[in-house]
Amino acid sequence: MGLFSRDPDSDDDADGAKANFFEERGFIASAIVIGAVLICLVVWFMVGGRSDEPTANPSQAPSTVVPTAQPTDEESTEPPVEPPTSAPTATRTAPPPPNNGTGGCHNKSASQAIPRLAAPVAVSWQFEGKMLIPIQAESGPARTSPNGVRSCFAHSPTGAVLAAMVALGQLQNPETAVATLQTRVYPGPGRQAAIAELGKPSSTPSAVAGEIQFAGFKVLDYPPNATRAIIQVVADLNGKAYGALPVTMRWYKGDWYVELQPDGSLNGSTEPDVLSSLSGYVRFSGSA
């Protein structure tokens, strides 16, 4: 069972090719998880996830440290075509130290306000493989292990958002994917299923055309004093559309962990949403 799965009893002929695609390739374990939400979203979109091709807002390449807070509940309009942008670059502003004794999971007074309109502020963006991930002194990550795995996020809605994005970014990086799967995924059947796939041959495509970067998020569920949160993470699909997928986070032993479904996937039979705009989502990326 791959990281993404689909109901095998579905008889929708229009989606048959897409279903077969995922059944054959699986997107499992280190390579499943290396692709995680982002590679799989692009492949799903390119092989015909929707019959009507959405018009997306071409994203600019990430280049700055602090995303500008922008309301996201405005009505979506047809965006103009923009010229190609240069490759993304990491922030030039000094990020928080890799080991911070006051921020992240050490922050006992982190704001419990759910970010619905404005992106987290004072965020630096650093490359994790080819992706940019967000880092904030207040909400984390406040700890980096010798093998590069980042952890220690604030027990807050913003901490859960940052934890989800950082974990997905590290899962797509071959240098940190296995360690992240083993140490940043909530223990249970899902993690066991994913780890069990580590030794199996993978037919995951070795490359996917284009670059993928985070574009935004929406907090779907975060009750008071949450021990479980659901964050809808949005990725820019190569400037052609936006892909959104819910990521379940669990508060465990003083930190946020990604929780996988029993089959080892992020979302079970739930397919990623392909969006034509970021209306209703908080824009959050390394883009200017």
Rank of each mutant, 00 (worst) to 15 (best):
I34D: 04
N225K: 15
P262E: 00
E259N: 04
A69R: 13
E259A: 07
T85K: 05
F22Q: 00
W125H: 14
E138L: 12
A167K: 00
D255S: 01
P115A: 11
P54G: 09
L132H: 04
G280Y: 11
H106F: 07
S139C: 15
A17Y: 13
N57R: 11
F217Y: 15
I32S: 05
A56C: 06
S124C: 15
S156Q: 13
L237C: 15
K130L: 06
P146K: 10
A215M: 07
Q182N: 02
P67T: 14
R228F: 03
A160D: 06
L162N: 01
G286H: 00
Q70G: 07
P97L: 12
D15C: 07
K240N: 10
S206C: 08
T270Q: 14
D263K: 04
N173C: 06
V81R: 13
Q126K: 14
P224F: 07
N107F: 02
K240Q: 15
Q112C: 06
G159E: 05
T176K: 01
G148L: 01
E82G: 07
T183M: 01
I133T: 00
T102D: 08
Q261T: 03
D263Q: 05
G48A: 13
R143N: 10
Y222I: 10
A29N: 09
P83E: 12
N57H: 13
M131T: 12
P88F: 06
G16C: 05
D7F: 08
P79V: 07
T89V: 15
Y257S: 01
S10L: 11
A14M: 13
R283N: 09
A193M: 06
P262S: 03
G2M: 01
P80A: 03
L171E: 01
V219K: 10
K200Q: 10
Q60L: 11
E75H: 05
T227K: 15
Q192R: 07
A119G: 04
S10G: 05
N100I: 03
L260Y: 03
Q192E: 15
L168D: 09
I133R: 02
A110N: 09
S124N: 15
A56M: 05
T72H: 12
Q136P: 04
M249H: 02
S124H: 11
A137I: 08
P141W: 04
N173Y: 09
V161Y: 06
W44A: 14
K200S: 11
V219A: 12
T93M: 12
I133G: 01
T89G: 06
T91W: 03
F217I: 08
A87Q: 12
H155P: 00
D263G: 09
P80T: 05
L245F: 05
P272V: 14
A177T: 01
A61V: 08
P246R: 08
T183I: 00
P79W: 11
W44V: 05
D263V: 01
N99W: 02
N57G: 11
P201I: 06
A160E: 01
N147P: 00
D11Y: 04
D255E: 00
G140Y: 03
V42T: 13
F127R: 06
A241G: 10
K240Y: 12
T227W: 04
T102R: 14
A288H: 12
D15N: 11
P95S: 09
Q172P: 00
S156W: 03
P67N: 10
A113K: 13
Q70W: 10
N225A: 15
P272N: 10
A17H: 11
D7E: 07
D236L: 09
G101Y: 06
E271W: 12
P246N: 11
G48D: 13
